[in-house]
């Protein structure tokens, strides 16, 4: 069971930006391949987002899994809604659903050219 205090902390993190990525490491220095993959997708789409480094905070690291009933990190939230982890973000990106959803939610997207 997730303590209310931790639930509130997580809720506050999620509400702190339109796009929030709970990840291992930071957007500049991801410390896990899956987190790096999602950072790569968001950066390629030119999306402004906030990273929450769960490695700095065990309460958040474990609490977020109960909060969303999702057992792994990274976890992406857009306008307060849980979108998915690495697999789902990658799949949505490849099918174009991610761009479509972000446009629908009014998130600024400006795709960057792929780095060679």
């Amino acid at each position: 069971m997730l303590e209310d205090r931790i639930k509130e902390r997580i809720g506050h993190n999620i509400a702190s930006d339109d796009v929030v990525l709970f990840m291992k490491g930071t957007p500049v220095f991801p410390q896990c391949g899956f987190s790096a993959a999602v950072v790569g997708v968001l950066s390629h789409l030119g999306i402004k987002f906030s990273g929450v480094n769960v490695l700095d905070d065990d309460e958040i690291r474990e609490g977020i899994k109960a909060y969303s009933d999702w057992p792994t990190i990274p976890q992406l939230y857009v306008k307060g809604e849980f979108i998915g982890g690495c697999d789902i973000i990658r799949e949505m990106y490849e099918t174009g659903e991610l761009m479509e959803m972000l446009n629908t939610l009014g998130i600024d997207v400006n795709p960057q050219p792929m780095q060679a």
Binding site: F34, D69, P71, F82, G84, G85, D87, I88
Partner: peptide, 25 residues
Amino acid sequence: RVQQHQMVYKALGGRMGGELHALAL
């Protein structure tokens, strides 16, 4: 998709993220 993955994780009985480190689902 989230619900579908959650259904699979439930079937795996909490092993996802523990014993089972990486499962590209």
